[in-house]
């Protein structure tokens, strides 16, 4: 474990709880893409199947349980409890256009042709594009609530910190995973546009609105 990965995991945890609290407190999921949340739930479920078979540490197992539980809870709040506030008119990204190609790629490009490894690879590839429905929804509505932009900033920062973690681990531990690094770069690059808007607008107290 290193500071980059620890701060990255905490940033990830913060993002998930900022969103969960926003929906719970405001009793509304306006401006939030339920499709992205479904993809994130799929990412965690397919990635943490080794939860009971491959014990790394208490921290690792605890975080896996928290990530799965909080993301499933978010999907539940959006599609069941506060379904009336779900903005399906703007959450129209065809996620099958993400899941199918990612699934195919996971079969073709992986470290080991075993079920667990292919599911892990699928999860890594899917996570890199899982935010697209959310970014697409913001581009359609033209703006995002400030709390939602904080959620996105924390979520985007987590994988950027993981990139630093992989640089650190490469030089100090000789650890390198090309699939995770490439997917992590793609994932972080997708946030660049948002990061620019967040830093130039939200940091100065303005609302995040995309140029019309």
């Amino acid at each position: 474990m290193n500071i980059f990965r620890l701060v990255g995991d905490l940033s990830h945890l913060l993002a998930i709880f900022v969103l969960l609290l926003k929906i719970w407190k405001s009793r509304s999921c306006a401006g939030v893409s339920g499709k992205s949340q479904i993809l994130f739930a799929l990412v965690f479920i397919t990635r943490y199947l080794d939860l009971f078979t491959n014990f790394i540490s208490v921290y690792n197992s605890l975080m896996k349980v928290i990530f799965i539980a909080s993301t499933v809870a978010t999907v539940y709040l959006m599609y069941i409890k506060f379904k009336a506030t779900y903005d399906s008119n703007h959450d129209t990204f065809r996620i099958e256009f993400l899941v199918v190609p990612v699934g195919g790629l996971a079969f073709l490009v992986n470290h080991d042709f075993t079920p667990l490894e292919i599911l892990w690879t699928f999860s890594i590839y899917l996570e890199s594009v899982a935010i697209l429905p959310q970014l697409f929804m913001i581009s359609k509505t033209g703006e995002a609530e400030t709390i939602t932009s904080h959620y996105l900033f924390a979520l985007g920062s987590y994988r950027a910190l993981y990139l630093l973690n992989w640089i650190y681990r490469y030089y100090f531990e000789g650890y390198f995973d090309l699939i995770a690094v490439v997917a992590g770069c793609v994932q972080t690059i997708l946030y660049c546009d948002f990061f620019y808007l967040y830093i130039t607008k939200v940091m100065w107290g303005k609302k995040l609105s995309l140029p019309a």
Partner: peptide, 10 residues
Amino acid sequence: KKAKNKKDEL
């Protein structure tokens, strides 16, 4: 190489 298969990251 073995170390890589140990998925120790979230």
